[in-house]
């Protein structure tokens, strides 16, 4: 199957492309002084990491990343940037000493993490080398949905007592309530206050 072999080459090609874009724009966020450009680089970095999610077969997560993270959270963030975008805050300079210190620490941390990432053998084995990682046709969306309501379609062959259990219904509900609280809290905090009131503590 020459087709399969070539498709793997494409997987690598796209992985390298998206990985470089992701890391490159992340570094761009770090070294850019202008807050609006930082936001733009962040958008590109997160969007290309959505590409990595697609490559890893997590289509739903990738689309979710694009929709919620990039389309929602970052628009909100840019909204905040524009609300506070006065000339003196657009590019705040960081002292050189802090840069040196943080680069040293960051470089060490990066070396440590990279060493850890390539240390464990099991993470480097491509046991599925003969299959073609295309955009996966497995309907992960429905399986994720079922997991969120408490049924695990991928664990149906566990021991009979646990078969299909260990879903995420409870965390799902907690997250829903949490989001509601966040919504109310954010609206409360961001509301326009009357600054003259002295009685309120």
């Amino acid at each position: 199957m020459t087709l399969a072999v070539d498709a793997i080459a494409w997987h690598q090609f796209f992985f390298v492309m998206f990985a470089l874009l992701t890391c490159g724009f992340a570094v761009g966020v770090l070294f850019s002084g202008n807050i609006v450009r930082m936001a733009f680089y962040l958008v590109l970095s997160l969007a290309s990491s959505a590409g990595l999610f697609f490559l890893a077969g997590a289509e739903f997560v990738g689309a979710m990343q694009l929709m919620i993270y990039v389309g929602g959270t970052l628009v909100l963030l840019i909204f905040g940037v524009m609300l506070t975008a006065q000339d003196r805050f657009i590019s705040l300079k960081t002292p050189a000493g802090e840069w040196v210190l943080s680069l040293i620490i960051g470089g060490t941390l990066l070396a440590l993490l990279l060493a850890a990432a390539f240390r464990y053998e099991g993470w480097q084995q491509a046991e599925l080398g003969d299959t073609t990682p295309t955009s996966s046709q497995a309907d992960t969306t429905a399986r994720l949905g079922l997991s969120l309501v408490g049924v695990r379609p991928d664990k149906l062959d566990d021991s009979p007592r646990k078969a299909g259990m260990s879903g995420y219904l409870f965390p799902f509900i907690i997250v829903s309530v949490h989001l509601l609280v966040v919504l109310v809290g954010a609206a409360y905090m961001a509301r326009a206050k009357k600054r003259t009131t002295t009685t309120a503590r």
Partner: peptide, 9 residues
């Protein structure tokens, strides 16, 4: 989902 997400961009 993808169409909606990308349209939002």
């Amino acid at each position: 989902f993808f169409v909606l997400a990308v349209l939002g961009l």
